[in-house]
C-alpha cells in the first residue's frame, strides 16, 4: 500500500513540476491546465492510499511482505459475481443513448428505460447476492 501510494504521488508531483515549467515557459493555458489536472489525478489516489496506510497502523499486507506464505493469506478474499445480465442491459442503454445523439431524440426513451432497469437490477443484485 505504501509503495503503491508513493508511485502515484511521485508521478503526480512530476507532472506538476513539468506542468509548472511548461506553463511558465510557454504561457500556453491548455497544456498547463491539463498537466496540473494530471497532478491532481496523481495526488488524489496516491495520498489516499498513503493516508490509508498510515491509518491502518503502517502494517504491511500479506501481499506487501517478501516473507509471507500462502497460508497467511487464507480466508475469504471477497465476494465475486458469477454472472449478471445487467452490464449488458446497461451498455445497451448507453448504446441507445448515443444513437439518440445521432439519429433523433426518440432513441432516448428506450435508453432511459434500459438504464433505469439496469440500475435497479444492479442494486437489487448487490443487496441479494453473497453472504456478506
Amino acid at each position: 500500500m505504501k509503495f503503491e501510494g508513493t508511485v502515484l504521488t511521485l508521478l503526480g508531483v512530476f507532472y506538476g513540476l513539468m506542468g509548472a515549467v511548461y506553463w511558465i515557459w510557454s504561457k500556453d493555458d491548455t497544456g498547463g491546465v491539463m498537466l496540473v489536472g494530471a497532478l491532481a489525478l496523481g495526488l488524489l489516489p496516491g495520498l489516499y492510499l498513503l493516508w490509508w496506510y498510515r491509518r491502518s497502523g503502517k502494517r504491511l499486507r500479506t501481499e506487501d511482505r517478501q516473507d509471507a506464505t500462502i497460508e497467511e493469506g487464507a480466508g475469504v478474499i471477497s465476494s465475486f459475481p458469477d454472472s449478471s445480465i445487467w452490464p449488458f442491459v446497461f451498455a445497451m442503454g448507453c448504446f441507445m443513448g448515443v444513437l439518440a445523439l445521432v439519429f433523433g431524440t426518440w432513441f432516448a426513451f428506450p435508453a432511459i428505460a434500459l438504464g433505469v432497469m439496469a440500475m435497479a437490477g444492479f442494486t437489487a443484485e448487490s443487496r441479494r447476492g453473497g453472504d456478506i
Partner: peptide
C-alpha cells in the same frame, strides 16, 4: 449469483 471466494490453498 454471487460466490464468496476463498484464497487457494498452498502447495508446499
Amino acid at each position: 449469483m454471487t460466490d464468496l471466494i476463498e484464497r487457494p490453498v498452498s502447495t508446499s
